[in-house]
Amino acid sequence: MLEPIIYERKLTLQEFISRSEQAGISLLFNQASTGRISGITYFINDFKIKGQALGNRFKWA
């Protein structure tokens, strides 16, 4: 599911979003008032989890 996508190198953001959606994973990017992305949340079916809760590989860098 998400792990193989995370390990792929040199994916553009659009490719990452597209591959995640193809795997049934929806993404929510948390945007600060400055416009900067400050985090990411993953949705799979009715399950929701923040990237930071999954570990460093899944956090927004």
Rank of each mutant, 00 (worst) to 15 (best):
M1H: 04
M1G: 10
L2E: 03
L2W: 03
L2S: 07
L2D: 06
L2A: 10
E3I: 03
E3Q: 07
E3D: 11
P4Y: 00
P4D: 04
P4G: 01
I5P: 11
I5N: 11
I5S: 11
E8V: 02
R9A: 15
K10A: 13
K10W: 09
K10G: 14
L11H: 12
L11E: 10
L11V: 11
L11C: 11
L11G: 12
T12E: 08
T12P: 11
L13V: 12
Q14S: 14
Q14P: 02
E15V: 04
E15N: 12
E15I: 00
F16M: 09
F16T: 06
I17K: 14
I17L: 10
I17F: 08
I17Y: 07
I17A: 09
I17R: 12
S18P: 01
R19N: 10
S20T: 11
S20P: 05
S20Q: 03
E21K: 14
E21M: 06
Q22E: 15
Q22K: 15
Q22Y: 05
Q22D: 14
A23R: 01
A23F: 01
G24A: 02
G24V: 02
I25K: 01
I25L: 13
S26F: 05
S26P: 02
L27K: 06
L27Y: 02
L28C: 12
L28S: 15
N30S: 12
Q31K: 15
Q31N: 10
Q31S: 08
A32R: 14
A32P: 01
A32V: 00
S33Q: 13
S33M: 06
T34E: 14
G35C: 09
R36M: 09
I37H: 05
I37M: 10
I37K: 11
S38Q: 13
G39M: 01
G39E: 01
G39V: 00
G39D: 05
I40R: 06
I40W: 00
I40C: 07
I40D: 02
I40L: 09
T41R: 12
T41V: 13
Y42G: 08
Y42N: 06
Y42A: 06
Y42T: 04
Y42S: 08
F43L: 10
I44E: 03
I44Q: 05
I44K: 10
I44N: 02
N45Q: 12
D46F: 04
F47Q: 11
F47C: 00
K48S: 11
K48R: 13
I49F: 00
K50S: 15
G51C: 09
G51W: 00
G51L: 06
Q52I: 00
Q52V: 00
Q52Y: 13
A53T: 10
A53F: 04
A53C: 05
L54R: 05
L54H: 07
L54K: 07
L54Y: 00
G55W: 07
G55S: 11
R57P: 02
K59L: 08
K59V: 10
K59G: 03
W60P: 08
W60E: 08
A61N: 14
A61Q: 14
A61V: 08
